[in-house]
Structures are given as structure tokens and as C-alpha cells.
Nucleic acid binder design. Structure first.
Lengths: 232, 232, 232, 232
DNA sequence: CATGAATGAGGTTTCATTCAT
DNA sequence: TATGAATGAAACCTCATTCAT
């Protein structure tokens, strides 16, 4: 999951439509899928810039021109990969967030979703962790709403947990969202780049650590509090 | 601080040598600085791919060819920006880590260094948070060792904190490092892309939250622990 | 009427056959007409190169493939526009030339035909005055014979006028044909490109001026004649 | 000489500057000339659309990129050919028009300039008679002012001739200009496309015919006049 | 050391045309 | 006969890099 996607005041025409690929009437959905799959593979392995449309087309066993029947251009292809993947993830995320489970469990489930989604496919991971961060314009156009919705899911769970007394009263949900996302994102990047078989931690470990905190019980916070009063 | 973009099996030349710019004997260090500064500005505003060597040269008031007297190529220029910035940061980081202050304070200081460094210059932030994540080869060659050292600084502080009883015995330092770095990184990305004046949290807030944890005192962990035993 | 664009030694297939569109037996003549009309409109407004077959097909309310049932290719479509328009014009021109009217009147009528034909429709004018001059191969194949016949009509009238004593004995018919055609053509181009409502002269004015000549009675010719004897 | 170039209300930014090629400081004028010459040759023989920049570059013995150092793009290259050729012609035309010779002689000299200029080089002729008429935009940008000035030279001579009594009082100069230009233009097109060695007429013959008129002395005008009164 | 003119590789995208239905 | 999805060829131009001065 790309994290970028902010930049408040860029005008964008038809947000949804702009994202939509150019699908000919009666389009062959199987062909479309083949192209998307080939794109993930190729973008993931070669990187967006090094990926050649000719290569994607060949991998999808279609002519080069056919790619442009289904997608506006190369960037659009990347955008659609993001968009549809995110939609799948969000679909699952929404239903997880609808469950009545304790907040901690919901958080774990959402983070697990994140880690599983990216962590299950190195090519896709490469697209999400590397390629998608390249282009502000791209991110602007494609990832805004989907990612924001994912953040909102996390924030809602956090707020519910605070309200139910499961989480600290003075926990700042927006900051906590960034911590959760940033930590998971970093774990995935590390996994991707290290070449290890599995990420350094799973959702339970990560969320567990975040809930419990780093400090030894009854200790660090007081120290920190004490120090804070002293001038630098 | 960018970290990403290693691809599994990219061959990379002699890391140290590759990092070294082509500095003619007696090169004008002032000119070199001007070029680097122009590069940060240009990469930051235009992005690496859109940045033109001609533009950087013009901004630095040197001829295009001169850039190549000081730097191997465009990618090298980006790499040197990273490398020298990181070296500055590491220098400070090392001295912070040498202090005898409590671990929590050291952590806060290191995170503060991270946030201040990136958060003080949008152009530089853009280079670190966006441009540097683009090129597998680049990061492979340039960022590995410096970034690893930064991670080691964090890890050392964490281990010291665990040893001193300041942090939980069962805290996993490698995971904690990723959490710290990932959260700070995400906060910076959010700040960069949102266009807000300041990041949503400073080092104290971030580290405070991480040390204390999300869960309400005496609550969530038990809940989480209990649930964990039940099959899904 | 376009005339140009022959290149010296272009091989050209069977001129007649090449001109013939691929008309399937029982083809719908109404559909054919719609396509031709759409072609004039589109070629005229967009230019040949910018005109898209898809656009012409859409304007004619047929499928793209259907265009190729009636016409060999895009160039053929342009050629047929020329050819059939010229045939209409020639039909009228032949009957004008068969009349027993004085040569001056016949000339005027023919020039009027030229000006009215092109001057009545800016799209058609654009095709004839601009687009048709573009393609050597095209004009080579399509326009030669029709245009030559038009020139012959003019030449016949001129010769008849000379024979009848209406025109100067030493008038060179071939030159006069080119003058008549070139002047009318230029007037039409000027009209087309100027955006004016009407051409700067009608057939009567043009032919009148050409018949009468520029020189003041009894003057310039002597001057010109005198000068001519001197060596350069 | 292209005849088109009208269209009143198209906005164009810096008319002169837009025409100007991109000349690097210290540009090699010899190289520039070689490229222009190669362009005339290639455009003339292949046509603008079929001409490949690679071909022009090879003919000029420069790298492809070098073409773009001297000229903005392919169209600009064509425009500069027109512009500089016209400037040469205009230079001569202006001095011819400054002479105190009789109007008929001046006209002949100007038409001769036109015929000699285009008629001396089939490649150049092809560019002027065919390629330059293709693109309204091109003509719009490049030929407007130069061609208009040429027309003005002709018009000035005509007006002077009328004033001096050399030409008919009621001669319409604007129409006469178009006749002169159109006739010469047509003669050149015919020559170009026919493959004949020389144009069908030289300036003296053409201007002589136009001054004297087609009609037999004392005849045709009366006839025409008489007929004109009768209803069609 | 510095210059900047010259080089030339490289790839997306369009769109005329085809052909299976 | 009609369709329109699929094809795939084709070339301009940019710009990082070099090298003669």
C-alpha cells in the first residue's frame, strides 16, 4: 500500500472517470485480466520505467495496440493495478471493520490484511512499495480515495477502541493510524528488499508490540515526563 | 530516509567506489556544493526523471559538461545527495547515541533528528521520500550501508534500554526499529504530500506513543491474549 | 480544382482500376453517399492526415469496417471524392462547351462553373485547394485524366474563339488555359484562406479582365515590344 | 511561392520569433546550411510526410539530434526553408520594384523572379508548389507576411502603372495581382508535374499575354458588353 | 579545469486496415 | 453485408553523456 496520496489542492476533473480504463464495449474480461497480470509481473520485475509495453503485451499474449484498447496508457495501467487491488483489499477491510470483535482484534485483522496482501506477491509488493511512490501525479490521480478510505477504516477502529476503553483515552487516532500503517509498510519494504522469505513480523506481533508499547511497565513514561519539564 | 528499492538479485559493483563521485584533483568544492544544491532543488521539484541536467547546471551556474567533472552521472548525483546528507545525519546520530542519556531520550533525539532533517526542507524531503525510492539500482548502491548504520544506532539504543530495564524485556529490537523508522517515515510522507506546514507529530509525541503503547493500562493485552487462544 | 502533385517518374497502376472503389455487388448506394459526404466534411475540416477513418465512419453512421467495403482505403476515399466531383463538373462543362455561344461567353461559363463548384462549399474547397495537393501518388492516380479533360474544354473554347476571330490570332491557347485556370484557382485559394464571404471576383470580372488585358489601349504593348528588341 | 497564407483571425504569439529556428549560440552556419539543403532535397523528393528526419540528417552528415539544435522540429524546418527562400526573393523583388522602369517591365521582372526562383530547382519547386500547401497551420505561421509582402510589391507596381497611364484606369489591382500570381503559379505547377524541361512560358510571354488580353483588337469587349445586357 | 555543441539510442502511442463472427 | 475488436508497424524527439577546443 502506497502511503503517499496527499496533496490537497490539485484540481482533478472527474476523479472516478479519470481512473477508469478505456474498455471497449464487449471487451474481453479475460484478456483484460491477462494484461493486468502481465503488467504487475513486468512492472514488479523491471520497474515502471524499464517496463516496455511490448513486453507486457507479449506476456499477455496480445498485440501492443490491444493494451491501449483496455487502458488509456502505461500510467493508467499502473493506476488500475493499484485501484483494483485496493478495491479488493478495501472490500475485505470493510467487512472486517463491520465485525463486532474487540478493537485490538480488528486492528490485527486489518494489519494482517495489509501484510498478507502485499506480502503474498513480490511483484505486486514491488509495484506497491516502490513503483507507486514514484509519481506524485499518479498517486494523486489514483490512490487518493482508496488509501484515504483504508486510513479511515483504521481510524474508526481506533476511535471505537478508545470509546470502549480498550485503548488509552489520550491516544491520538491520526497519529496511531500513521504508526500502524508506517510500521507495516516499513516491514514490507524491508521484507521486499532483504529478499527474506517472510516479513520480520506478522500482524499479531506488530499490533501486539504497538498496543503494549516499548516501555517496561511503570517506568519509561515517568522518566520521559520528568525530562520534559527540564529545558533543553 | 529512504530505504527501499533493492531488488532481489541485482548485481552491484563495488559499493564504496560506486558512491564516490569523480572528483578531479583540486576540484572547486564551492562549485561542487552549488551543483549538489541545485540538484536537490531540481530533483525535489521536478522529480528525478523530469529533472534535466541542463537545468541543474544552469541553476548551479556551470556548464553541463562541468557536472560530469564532479559527478559520474545523473544517478550518481542523486546518490551523492543521499550519501552526504546521510553522513551529516549519521554524524549527529552517532554523537547522540554516545550520550549517556536514558534510552527513551536517545530514541527521541534520534527520531527528532530524522524528522528535523527531512522535515526542514521540502525539496530534500521530496528527494528522500519519493525520488530515492524509485530506482532499485540506485538505492542498492548508495543507501544500503548508510541506512543500515542508522538502523543500527536505533537498535543499539533499544538494546541498551532493554538491558537497563527501561524497555520491556521481550521487546524485539529489530521490529521496534522498523516501527520507529516506519512511523517517522510515514509521518514525513504524509506531511510532504499533504502540504501541511508541520508534520502531525513531533518526535516526543511519536516516541511517547510508541513507548506507552495504544492499549489502556491493564486492559487490552489480556483481552488480546484471551482472544488469541480461541480458534478463528 | 487541384492539379498538382505529380512527381516525375512515379509508377502508377492501372489508372482506371485504381480509381474504382471496391463496390460489393448490391452495395447500398445511400450508404456509399453518406460515407462520401462524411469524408468531404471530415477531410475538409480536419485535413486528410488528421481525419480519422473512425470519425468518418461515425459521421456516416456506419462501422469502420464498412468504409472498406465501399472504398479501398483512405486515399481512395479522397480520390473518389475528387473523381466524382470532377465528373459532375465535367458533365456540366461538356454541355456548356457544346453550346454555340460566343467563345467569351463559354469561357465565362466554364470559369463560373469552376468558381461556383469550389466556392459553394468550404469543406469541398478545402479538399480541392489544399488536401488534394498533398499527395503525389494520389493526384497522379486520380486527378490526371479528369483535370486534363477540363483543360481540354477550355483549350477547345479558346481555339474556337481564335478561329472565329473573337480572340487574338497569336494567342497561345495552352498558356491561356493555364492563365484562366491558375487565376481562378488562386482566387479560390485566397477566398478559402481569407475567410471572406465571397471570392474577390466572379467569372465575369475575371474573364473580362483577361480578355481586355491590363494595358491601357494603344500603350504598353509598344513599350514592351520596343524593350524586347534590346539585348538583356 | 505558396499562395495560401490567409486566414484572418488566428491568434499567433510572436510572429517573427515563432518562425525563428532554435540556433545555439555560436552555431555553425555551414552545418545549418547543410541541413537546410538536405531538407529541401528530401522534402522535395519524398514529400514532407514521407521525409524522415533521419534521412535529412544523414544527407546533411549530422546526427539526428543536431537537426533539433538548429530547428525546432520537422515543421519548423519546412517553415525556415520557405521563410529564408522568400526573404531572398523579396530582397531582389524590393530592389526591382524600386527601379524607375516602366510598370510593364517591373511586372515582367517580378514574374520572372517568381518563375526563375521556383523554376530553377525541382526539389525547391516541389516544396513550394506542393508541400507548403498542405498545412494550413504551417502556412499560417510561416508564409503570411512574406507572401503578403510579395503581393504588395505586385500591387504597388500595378497601381503605379495605372497612375502613369500605362495600365487601364479601371483595372482592379487586387484582381490583377491574383491573376499574375495564380498564372505563374499554375505554370510552375504544370512544369513540375509534367516533367517538361522548361515551363510552358516565360515571364515575358506571360506578362505580355496578360497586358494585351485575349480578345482580338476592337472586338471581344464589345461583344461581351453587348451580351451582358441580354438576360441569360 | 571548463565549456557546450554534438551525438544517437530508444520507446510510447496512434490509427489504417483486417477478419472472425 | 456489416461489424468493431484486434492488430502491429512506424518515427519523432528528448536528453544524458561525450569530447574537441
Amino acid at each position: 500500500m502506497a502511503h503517499s496520496a496527499h496533496r490537497d489542492a490539485l484540481p482533478h476533473a472527474a476523479p472516478a472517470a479519470a481512473v477508469e480504463e478505456r474498455a471497449p464495449f464487449g471487451a474481453d474480461p479475460e484478456k483484460r485480466r491477462r494484461i493486468l497480470k502481465a503488467a504487475v509481473r513486468t512492472f514488479g520485475r523491471r520497474g515502471f520505467h524499464e517496463a516496455r509495453i511490448a513486453e507486457i503485451a507479449a506476456a499477455a499474449k496480445v498485440a501492443e495496440g490491444t493494451v491501449y484498447l483496455y487502458f488509456r496508457n502505461k500510467e493508467d495501467l499502473l493506476g488500475v493495478v493499484f485501484d483494483e487491488s485496493m478495491e479488493d483489499v478495501l472490500e475485505k477491510g470493510r467487512s472486517l471493520a463491520r465485525s463486532k470483535a474487540p478493537a485490538a482484534e480488528q486492528l490485527t485483522a486489518l494489519v494482517d490484511l495489509h501484510l498478507q496482501f502485499i506480502g503474498s506477491d513480490r511483484d505486486l509488493a514491488s509495484v506497491f512499495q516502490i513503483e507507486l511512490r514514484r509519481s506524485a501525479r499518479l498517486v494523486e490521480r489514483f490512490s487518493r480515495s482508496k488509501l484515504v478510505e483504508y486510513f479511515r477504516l483504521l481510524a474508526d477502529v481506533l476511535r471505537a477502541g478508545i470509546a470502549s476503553g480498550e485503548f488509552r483515552r489520550n491516544l491520538e487516532p491520526r497519529l496511531a493510524v500513521r504508526i500502524l500503517f508506517g510500521a507495516a509498510d516499513e516491514i514490507l519494504s524491508e521484507w521486499l528488499l532483504s529478499g527474506e522469505k517472510k516479513p520480520i513480523a506478522d500482524a499479531k506481533q506488530l499490533v501486539g508490540t504497538l498496543l503494549r508499547g516499548f516501555a517496561a511497565p511503570g517506568d519509561s513514561l515517568k522518566v520521559a515526563a520528568r525530562r520534559r519539564r527540564k529545558p533543553q
